[in-house]
């Protein structure tokens, strides 16, 4: 019995080694397709409107909340998103990805529209929670990308730039009229989020 256990052990190792070598063969191509990987990664967040508006909402909300949220949210988001991405890479099925992303647009849009000011940690946890879903959606396609690293860099950069555009738009909050415009924009994002949520739940076609 002991012998058998040992044997199983060895088999497992052989398998691991084989897989590792295979990973090596796959990675050997990684220097090729950098441009393609970057572009496909960069476009990924842009193709889903629900992704796009949720990311802009993060920037807008950060700008509304002012310091330190204005920089804390965009800096923590990529890190948490990467953790969600890891789940996607590992192929761990996360229930309700589409619902989570659609709800994130709804929730973050509502926060901006109502000019909600919860304590910082609540805002961070809320944004972080949704970041996992976004990361998972992008990360799931990472292993199949022509160049996984370039793909990852592409979608992280795109997400970051969407935050930035939200923050830049958010500088309008310096003026009273701008403040109202931003809240209106938040309302629009929330409305779109509601639509996507309804679609994700199968309420509308």
């Amino acid at each position: 019995m002991k012998y058998l256990a040992l044997k199983q052990h060895t088999t497992k190792w052989t398998l691991t080694l084989t897989l590792l070598t295979m990973a090596g063969t796959a990675s050997a191509h990684t220097e090729t397709g950098v441009a393609g990987g970057l572009i496909s990664g960069f476009l990924h967040p842009l193709f889903g409107l629900d992704h796009l508006i949720a990311m802009v909402a993060v920037g807008l909300w950060g700008a509304q909340l002012e310091r330190p949220a204005i920089w804390l949210l965009p800096i923590t988001f990529p890190a948490v998103m990467a953790v969600g991405g890891l789940l996607g890479v590992a192929g761990v099925a996360l229930p309700g990805i589409e619902i989570g992303i659609a709800l994130s647009a709804l929730a973050l849009g509502t926060m901006v529209a109502t000019n909600a000011r919860p304590p910082l940690w609540i805002a961070a946890v809320l944004v972080g929670f949704f970041a996992v879903f976004h990361g998972h959606a992008h990360g799931a396609e990472l292993p199949t990308a022509a160049n996984p690293l370039a793909y990852g860099v592409g979608f992280i950069t795109c997400t970051g730039l969407l935050h930035l555009s939200g923050i830049l738009l958010g500088t309008l909050t310096r003026w009273p009229a701008g403040r109202q415009a931003i809240r209106g924009l938040g309302g629009l994002i929330a409305a779109l989020g509601a639509y996507f949520s309804a679609a994700a739940f199968g309420l509308i076609a």
Binding site: G85, L142, P143, T157
Partner: peptide
């Protein structure tokens, strides 16, 4: 943080 995120994803991959 972007570089760190790329590092996390890449290591995971």
């Amino acid at each position: 943080s972007w570089i760190m995120a790329a590092g996390i994803l890449y290591s995971g991959f």
